[in-house]
Write a protein that binds this DNA or RNA. Structure first.
Length: 560
RNA sequence: GCGCCCGUAGCUCAGUUGGAUAGAGCGUCGGACUUCGAAUCCGCAGGCCGCAGGUUCGAAUCCUGCCGGGCGUACCA
């Protein structure tokens, strides 16, 4: 049992249950009790609007219901100090200071796993993200998707889901031929040919580098060899090398992919055709104007979509249908797709596809990550893979650093656009929120170093702490304990909203409170009993900072 | 034209399953280091939550319309 918050929710639920049992058709099981933290301290540590939300069912006025709930409230452990009815029917709850000690003990009981919980109950989940075409290096926008997907995966794992990270490789279709041709032409250049590089090919500098490397490996054997004879060789080389580069960049960014899934493998296994057959058997495929269409309008899409063109070639969407069928066949309870927001027009047809395959639409959760506007000194940096004008993720990492980069991405909700100014990110590096948080961690470590030098024993036992926690009576000390107790709820929010940004905001709030407390109070003082109690508190703060940073994939340095 | 996302302090953004007096960072200005890390802290200023209606005990949050920005609207991927 997570201390205080969930204990109070349980007490309230028990108090509400008799009221609901008294009327017919009520469903106490479905009752969701919300416990808010009021903005004003006079409104208590927690407040709930449960009485107001029951007015319709109970057909009584909210204050009356609130009084009834309070009368039913049992509190054998003495967690609640005072309860009040306020305003239109809020129930304000004041927590007994000593109750917060449970939060600290909980943290010390299993430090590294504090915050983890089992709302997922072992459900299998897949998070698919980045999935950039292997035609060039990752850029900053991919980085945002990578950070979001990676951290979402970590959060879901922390919440008891079994998670697999997947990268879908679009290695089929004519873009790969374009890639191979691009390398071919650059290779001929390296051989000394003067050629006119065709439009609509990949003309980034990285292609020249690849061509030089390729020439190193194979020598002159393909010099002036007709393109058609050797294209597959060039395509394969370019694709493999670029994909390896993507893997390296992701690793440098702290992202590890569990499973790389090739689109081509679907074609090789004839999975696209099989999927189309299955959909046809279900009555969702028809022929018109020489093409074959998927009836996505049956599930709310605005128009039907072509899956097999008149020329017999399947579309990308057809592959994606087969891909998602494949995903579900692997036993995932639900799958999360993280897409660039420029694909939002694709959402409805994909959900339609999921339904047509007999799955619930909610089994596919599509998270749209908005575009990143890369700026330098306030001016936009032009980005285009084809033209080769872009700043790579790698360059941003070298310039700004992994921790700052991840933190900036993760501090905004993914569906709002983000201005990322390289100069600002560097210039402000000392005022960057990530350093604010890391500094608190380093400072805490330093305190423990000093304590050790002075020979102060630091209690770290969950049961019957060796220190007297009743000495923690400062307002901020109680606030810190309370906030530490909120951490599991923050994670649960992230998991249900599939949004990581609550964690950075939580961290900032916790760290800010700690810094303020630190400036007002001495942790290591003359009063040994008080010192030990405060160290116990400080250790808990440090632990939660660590756990949260770990989830973000951001380092928790002991010195900086 | 139609569809989706966004519009909150000078700037960048939280808060949007409806809750009490709308928050933070940066920036401006003014304070705090003989004491555990000043990459910190404390304080001041800053708002018709894009506009207008509606729903109700209560709206930044839900509904409708409008304005402004982004993206999409392929038998491309």
């Amino acid at each position: 049992m997570i201390p205080v918050r969930s204990q109070i929710i349980q007490l309230l639920a028990d108090a509400v249950a008799p009221l609901l049992e008294a009327i017919e058709g009520a469903t106490p099981a479905g009752l969701n009790i919300e416990l808010d933290i009021p903005k004003a301290a006079q409104h208590g540590d927690y407040a709930t609007n449960v009485a107001m939300s029951l007015t319709r069912q109970l057909k009584r006025n909210p204050r009356e219901i609130a009084a009834q709930i309070i009368a039913n409230l049992k509190d054998p452990e003495g967690i609640i100090g005072k309860v009040e009815i306020a305003g239109p029917g809020f129930i304000n709850i004041f927590v007994q200071p000593r109750a917060w000690h449970g939060v600290l003990k909980d943290i010390y009981r299993e430090p590294g796993t504090y915050g983890r919980q089992d709302i997922g109950a072992g459900k299998k989940v897949q998070v698919e993200f980045v999935s950039a075409n292997p035609t060039g290096p990752l850029h900053i926008g991919h980085g945002r998707g990578a950070a979001t997907g990676d951290v979402l995966a970590r959060i879901l794992m922390a919440c008891g889901f079994q998670v697999e990270r997947e990268y879908y490789i679009n290695d089929a279709g004519n873009q790969m031929d374009t890639l191979g041709r691009s390398l071919y032409y650059r290779y001929q250049e390296v051989m000394g040919e003067s050629i006119e590089f065709p439009d609509a090919h990949y003309q980034g500098e990285y292609m020249r580098d690849l061509a030089r490397d390729f020439a190193q490996e194979v020598g002159r054997q393909y010099h002036r060899t007709p393109l058609e004879e050797v294209l597959p060789i060039f395509t394969r080389y370019a694709g493999d090398r670029i994909l390896a580069g993507i893997r390296d960049d992701l690793n440098a960014f702290g992202v590890t992919i569990d499973h790389w899934f090739s689109e081509q493998s679907l074609h090789d296994a004839d999975a696209v055709r099989k999927t189309m057959d299955e959909l046809e058997a279900r009555g969702y495929i028809y022929e018109e104007e020489g093409a074959r269409w998927f009836r996505s309008t049956a599930f709310g899409d605005e128009k039907d979509r072509v899956v097999i063109r008149a020329n017999g070639v399947s579309t990308y969407f057809a592959s994606d249908l087969a891909y998602h069928k494949n995903k579900f066949s692997r036993g995932f309870d639900f799958v999360v797709d993280i897409w660039g927001a420029d694909h939002h027009g694709y959402v409805e047809r994909m959900l339609a596809g999921v339904e047509a395959m007999g799955r619930a639409r909610s089994d596919l959760k599509i998270i749209l990550v908005q575009l990143v506007n890369l700026l330098r000194g306030g001016a936009p940096v032009a980005m285009s893979t084809r033209s080769g004008e872009f700043v790579t993720l790698r360059e941003v990492l070298d310039e700004v650093g992994k921790d700052a980069c991840r933190f900036i991405f993760l501090t905004r909700r993914s569906d709002s656009q983000l201005d990322f100014d390289l100069d600002v990110a560097k210039m402000q590096s000392n005022d960057n929120p990530v350093y604010y948080v890391q500094y608190a961690h380093a400072r805490l470590c330093s305190i423990f170093d000093v304590a050790r030098e002075r020979g102060i024993a630091c209690g770290d036992s969950p049961d019957g702490p060796p220190c007297n926690l009743d000495r923690l009576v400062e307002g901020q000390e109680l606030e810190i304990m309370k906030l530490l107790g909120e951490y599991p709820a923050v994670l649960a929010n992230c998991a249900s909203a599939l949004q990581p940004h609550f964690i950075p905001y939580y961290l900032h709030e916790l760290v800010s409170l700690f810094h303020s407390y630190y400036n007002r109070n001495r942790i290591l003082g003359d009063d040994n009993e008080l010192t030990q109690a405060r160290l116990y508190l400080a250790g808990a703060v440090r632990q939660v900072i660590r756990n949260a940073l770990e989830l973000l994939g951001v380092g928790a340095p002991e010195k900086m």
